[in-house]
Amino acid sequence: MRLALLALLTRSPAHGYELKQDLEKLLGAAYPQPNVGQIYVTLGRLEKSGLIEGEDVEQSGRPNKRTYKLTDAGREAVLAWFEDTAEEPRVRDEFFMKLALAPQSGLADPIALINKQRRQYLNTMRDLSKLAAAEDRDNKISQLLIEGAMLHLQADLDWLERCQEELE
């Protein structure tokens, strides 16, 4: 979340709750939102490392709110973030280890493991389809997030199919 918050602050200074709302609006209801507490903690750390600067703004009848702006070092960090390519997603390591070790252990049948895992993926796929249908159609970012999750899951299901073909 660190860099997402920094990137949001490139537009203009903002306080923690605004940033939470911006994230929600951008990513849609589908995205599991960080709670506002997590956001304040992260902002505190970013300030300590000199990437943002906080300033207290007085509010009548309420506690002060702290508004943050990006420092030059923060802007550099965002630039470097955009510069880097992201890491590739990884194979489901834990399931793969179970599958690899099941025959030796004698405690689980690989095909039963595959079937169980497939059921979970299919159910999640179903939930994602429902979520996509419920989510605002015009929020492209949110729809793409869900579609991305579905395509990853599809790949995992294809891979399970390959495992089953080879191991049966």
């Binding site: 589908a30 995205y31 599991p32 095909i111 079937n115 497939r118 059921r119 979970q120 299919l122 159910n123 999640t124 179903r126 939930d127 994602l128 979520l131 997030l145 869900i146 999750a149 990853h152 899951l153 089953q164 073909e165 049966e168």
Partner: peptide, 30 residues
């Protein structure tokens, strides 16, 4: 799920599933 001319699995979807904290739909969207 059909493999090699046989039914390998026959699964009912939906229905009372409780995804764990790291699984299910929010896990794949995070």
């Amino acid at each position: 799920s059909f493999f090699d001319g046989r039914i390998a699995d026959d699964a009912q979807l939906g229905g009372g599933r409780r995804p764990g904290p790291s699984g299910g739909v929010s896990g794949v969207l995070e």
